[in-house]
Amino acid sequence: MNSATPTQRWHTIVTTVENKPGVLARVAGLFSRRGYNIHSLAVAPTDDERFSRITFTVDVEGSPLDQVVKQLNKLINVVEIRELDPLDAVERELMLVTVCADAGHRHDLLELIDDWRAFVLSENDSEIMLSLSARPARLDEFEASLRPFGIAKLQRTGRVALPSLD
């Protein structure tokens, strides 16, 4: 599970690709062939349904990211590629998490949810499922603060990013 915050070693790459079968496999294959691990991945069509945007973060410590970007660019189905500097980009990630909420701790948990402006999506006597959309680093913090209550299930989407507006 990710506990790192974006530093030099994590890179966010945003690619616009043709929305066709097999394109994700081509992109992912380029990374695995060179021994790079894709840390997080988000894929969805853009406003133009002929194209999809793939946002991924990669751990490229000690390896030239430049070479990956150039190789990605060689893929026929990759239309555009850019590396986003976290300082010049808006990044968001969505987390769904089910937390233990027995009577003794339920009040504290609801207070925490309120503080973080998370949403309760579903609940029963023993658990609460909630969602939060935030910067990945904020989700890390939120996750840490939930941990003492007991996390039953957790799923994050992987980050999506767009360049900031000047």
Binding site: G22, R26, G29, L75, I76
Partner: peptide, 14 residues
């Protein structure tokens, strides 16, 4: 075939 040859072709089509 396209999966197997992805890494050994400039491009492939199904």
């Amino acid at each position: 075939t396209t999966g197997i040859t992805m890494a050994v072709t400039k491009h492939n089509f199904l």
